[in-house]
Design a protein around this nucleic acid. Structure first.
Lengths: 130, 130
DNA sequence: CCAATATCCTTGATTCACTCAAGCAATAAG
DNA sequence: CTTATTGCTTGAGTGAATCAAGGATATTGG
């Protein structure tokens, strides 16, 4: 996992708690992804595929280069977790879809579900019971 | 930078704000480090060298393998930002010290100071005026 | 309609973070 | 003194991320 970027010292208790929270969350996220044999980046992408969408949209939302998405999606596709079909409206573009099997294993198991929903999701890694 | 691990949807406004905060902080941290031509990991290590310490202590605090620290410190040393001297008390161990020049450029400039203090530090990237 | 341009994505090259397995050197334990 | 154990380094390998090019399709403006 990435090294934590928090400060060495904090000026308030609240600040310290906040940094700890982020740290714990990140590690839980990573652990949850690892249980599914996914890297955090893979889980992040996969989690944003609740609905079918294009790669450009993902790249913009995640603030990274399109080629980075290409590469991550390629691995997910190789794992059979995602399909990449040409967009009939624009044949340059590709539409990504989470495969049903993956959907099941990510959302329907006893696992912490690292599916990285960006907002308002009830299955955060932090919800782990372990 | 690492892809953000936040959820796609949040269950409350507060949660959304919190994830955004983390995202903004991380990007600011990275940007601040980049201004000093440092990677986030390098800034993280450098920031924890306010006092001289060993590599093992760093590895444990940062929750990563010692060899990872070795590698990061090697780059910092190559940049002349850190010195690695044998510990007279235990000649297996190495003591890391931030070089004075670096100390100045990291803590005494107009820059956001990515020096990744882990707790209670008044020079967070988030304090940027830009 | 066609040329120029812009868009979407892929490829290739690079760099770095990170992990694991081995190993060396020095200290600690028996 | 022998046998761990500890502290760090090295080497191999994976993956994330960025940049520079390029191919294919769309779009725009003659």
């Amino acid at each position: 996992m990435a090294l934590p970027n928090g400060p060495v010292t904090t000026s308030s208790e609240a600040e310290a708690v906040l940094f700890d929270l982020v740290d714990v969350y990140d590690r839980a996220y990573e652990a949850a992804a690892a249980e599914l044999s996914l890297s955090p980046a893979q889980a992040c992408v996969l989690g944003r595929l609740d609905e079918r969408r294009g790669m450009g949209a993902l790249a913009e939302e995640l603030g990274c280069d399109a080629s980075n998405i290409t590469q991550i999606v390629a691995r997910l596709e190789a794992l059979g977790l995602v399909t990449r079909e040409p967009n009939p409206q624009d044949r340059r573009a590709r539409l990504l879809t989470r495969t049903p099997e993956e959907t099941r294993s990510t959302t329907g198991s006893q696992q912490p579900s690292p599916s990285p929903a960006r907002r308002s999701d009830d299955s955060h890694p932090t919800n782990r019971t372990s």
